[in-house]
Amino acid sequence: MPDQHILRAFDRDLEEIQARIMKMGGLVEAAILESARALRQRDPALAEEVRRADKAIDRLEEEINEEAARLLALRQPAASDLRTVLTVIRIAGDLERMGDYAKNLAKRTVVLIEMPRVEGAAGAIRRMAKEVEQMLKDALDAYMRRDAALAEDVRQRDLEVDQMYTALFREFLTFMMEDPRRITPCMHLHFIAKNIERMGDHVTNIAEQVIYLVTGEMPDEARPKATDIAPPSAGGA
């Protein structure tokens, strides 16, 4: 299919809105990595920067939604053009949520810095964040390249994030049972881990949007899930 519309302004509009999604995606990737780094390095200034940067992400989402509404009204897109606009709106929503989770991570980091370290936790969270960030990068690449196979791969990889979360959950539970003074930091760390796990779900949504964009069909629900969060056998919790 030829890439160019007869009406070239339509091409410019579609390119513009997708460029904004990429920009937004880049900001969210950075927010994930930086917030995890702030936690690991116990760097309140960096955490504060992540919190401030979330405003730009929110603003981009608003701009994308406005631009999408304008495009729908003025260009009446059909077929793959319509799917482009629809997916842009949904992906912007997912990215905005991910930005919020990164911001929340930064917020909790500021609190955690005042407490004793929970050994191993920050490193594990950093690895988890890194994995989600890589998934997001691949999902956005898949979007730009209209690569449904890569998107499906991203979708499958969410299982690993879920497993990392489950492992961390059990570890925090053990820590808390061993030493009640660790309950507060472990609770914060648990929320962080849970939020990163949710980021993974949003990346999965984005990957599904890519599949819809390319094929016109939403993928079937059959996706590996790992939500076994039974407490460790020692506990009576």
């Binding site: 299919m1 030829p2 890439d3 160019q4 519309h5 007869i6 009406l7 339509f10 897109p77 059909a78 077929a79 793959s80 053009d81 319509l82 799917r83 016109g216 069909e217």
Partner: peptide, 19 residues
């Protein structure tokens, strides 16, 4: 047809591309 045409010629036509 208007959300997910199966033939690239249909897609080109309804999205207003040169076909």
């Amino acid at each position: 047809i208007f959300t997910n045409p199966r033939d690239p010629r249909t897609e080109s036509y309804i999205t207003g591309r040169i076909g």
